[in-house]
């Protein structure tokens, strides 16, 4: 049995999990406030556009979106197996393809700003 290539996706999962642990609660809270009709200043068009237009802002948004997606994709693959879906190879292709597409789209959208 050869050494596994899972380190590639596991490292993205682990990095994403750490970033999500640090940032997901507070970022989701910002959007929850917006849903309650009390959108924070940062989520206003002017502020957010200026943030996303800045190269560091772009890098931040890209990192957050991509790593959250890869984290979720890998854990979803494991969870589906745990729930009894045993087509692991197919599941892996679907979830990683989704995470990859999301990463590419976020790059594209951020490049437009």
């Amino acid at each position: 049995m050869a050494k596994s290539n899972k380190p590639v996706v596991w490292s993205l999962f682990a990095a994403g999990g750490t970033l999500a642990a640090l940032l997901a609660p507070v970022l989701a809270l910002l959007f929850l406030l917006a849903a309650l009709g009390r959108a924070p200043e940062l989520l206003g068009y002017a502020r957010l556009h200026a943030f996303a237009a800045n190269p560091l802002g772009k890098l931040f948004l890209l990192t957050v979106i991509a790593l959250f997606l890869w984290h979720a994709a890998h854990r979803l693959r494991v969870a589906l197996h745990d729930f009894g879906l045993r087509r692991d190879r197919l599941v892996a292709v679907v979830v990683y393809l989704a995470a990859g597409t999301g990463t590419a789209l976020s790059l594209l959208y951020l490049a437009r700003i």
Binding site: A20, L27, V64, I65, F68, L69, A72, G102, L105, S106
Partner: peptide, 17 residues
Amino acid sequence: FIGAFALLLLRAVERLS
């Protein structure tokens, strides 16, 4: 939920652009 939130962020960036 982390994945769904990432998609929401992606949508926000798309709308922003």
